[in-house]
Nucleic acid binder design. Sequence first.
DNA 1: TTGTAAGCGTTATCAG
DNA 2: CTGATAACGCTTACAA
Lengths: 323, 323
Amino acid sequence: MRSAGIREVARLSGVSIATVSRVFNDAASVRPDTQQRVLEQAAALGYEPSSLGRNLVRGRSELLGLIVPNVSFPLYGQMIGGIEDVLGHRGMSMLLASSHDDAVSELTAAQKVLRHAVDGGVVINTQSDVALPAPRGMNWVHISPEHSGLPYRVELDNAAGGRLAAREFLRLGRRHLAYIGAPGRESSERQHGFAGELSRAGLDYRRAQGDYSELSGTQAADDLLEKSSVLDAVFVAGDLMAAGVLRALHMRGLRVPGEVAVIGFDDAALASLLYPRLTSIRQPAYAMGAAAAELSLRLIGGHSAESVVFSPELVRRESTGPP
Amino acid sequence: MRSAGIREVARLSGVSIATVSRVFNDAASVRPDTQQRVLEQAAALGYEPSSLGRNLVRGRSELLGLIVPNVSFPLYGQMIGGIEDVLGHRGMSMLLASSHDDAVSELTAAQKVLRHAVDGGVVINTQSDVALPAPRGMNWVHISPEHSGLPYRVELDNAAGGRLAAREFLRLGRRHLAYIGAPGRESSERQHGFAGELSRAGLDYRRAQGDYSELSGTQAADDLLEKSSVLDAVFVAGDLMAAGVLRALHMRGLRVPGEVAVIGFDDAALASLLYPRLTSIRQPAYAMGAAAAELSLRLIGGHSAESVVFSPELVRRESTGPP
DNA sequence: TTGTAAGCGTTATCAG
DNA sequence: CTGATAACGCTTACAA
């Protein structure tokens, strides 16, 4: 049993369906008493215009497609929060699908979302290097490290993050530095900024590589500590890996920040819960999500829009300090 | 300019739109060569049936509404993951909205989702004590601690979690116990199970109250430690609070688990990253999400469905062990 | 196996 | 200010 439709309301209030429609759209052009009659009937029948019908004729869905690698990663959750808040104000909703960090699922997710005729889309950390399919007039906005040829992007200035870390270590008088990276462009940009700032100060640094996991952080730190006995500061490409680094240092009885200072990246919720609380390069995830949504909304409205670059910020906590 | 529609495909492949439709639905009833011709044209034009049209005529949207208090809470992220995986197999998509832990926003979110004519809905941790609005034939499934009168629920047996914690402490020979709770039904159920098992062993326990935040965990633990000098085991209603408890113990130089054992609740990702790694009562969030989706799908299909209760599990890590 | 045609619930155009 | 009526893109009897 379908719920009441526009016809029913029209019939019972003695007007045409066109008038009912008008009442729910540009109420201005309908006489107050007619309007009220319709509204009353509508309320009595529990009628609400169906967006299905409306969207069909308007060719819009008031939906924004959102593709996320993995919903349970808190940083992405923050981005989604930013997107949602922006959309909420404009009456749009969010269709969510996961890419599971995998190009094939990402494509599947995109198709799934497109079938619902979304007006626009945001994809976080795209996995494929070709553009996602999009019908004419629909655009994907990417929250990703720069990707060749993608027109609409919201990104973080990763190199600036590296510079922030380097400067902080220098300021604290650290001289025996290391970087623990991971595969991918983001990490290499962070490293690039870090290295640049150090070379300006005439310093070199040691390197190790992980994969953003906690365990890999522990292993990378162990490697580093075996090779170079002198090490008083480590910059880590992600907070989770940094957790592993803290553990490695603790196991070896090295005091943080007394003997070794540590700076992570992202400033995930986790950072402030570790012991010692982790100094980290903050990625403004909520704001980045909001910016992506704004960008998409502009595009949907047919306006021009430009990519945005966000600057990271150093959040000082217990894992850094004077030697 | 709209993208290619069914008409275009039909015209270019020299068949009627009905045939094109059939190709995309019950392909069985159309001749292989016709089918292929259509498929080729469709591919060439990048045609995909619009769910707007399809859903309009079928009276379904293939959408499931999802209301979450807060997307950036990892446990909810896991639930969403479970929901999504189940839906994905059945070709449904997920419309996401946040309730921001607030009854009013929850209602707004529900209405927003309802406007898109979702076929079903899942609401995590509902804030309102009245039922959410729902058109005839549509049902909300709740992932929440029991709420009077809600018909379709997926819940965790919180009391069983409390019993698990109590038994583990007893097994380890701990005798000076405490519970750190928080407001709300979930915490009191956990406490109830904990207390029941202890009283069976003829033991009493101390209590303190927090609000699930890290800081409140530290404060509650401090309270406890000031009042009772003998304390060798603490059961905490949430992992985040447990992080605060570990910090308090560390500050006082108490060894964990040597002097005090700690068990948290939820087994959030955080638990295994703390130092020492936190033993916790695992809430099978992914499975609970999946179960809620199954439940909703049954309801959508017009079948009967029953609420489900999940059992928690003890995950042993470093924060418990022999004294 | 295929085509014709009647909807699905709405908005928008055009008369009145 | 209001009413017919033609779309919108698709599915589904019913006929052929």
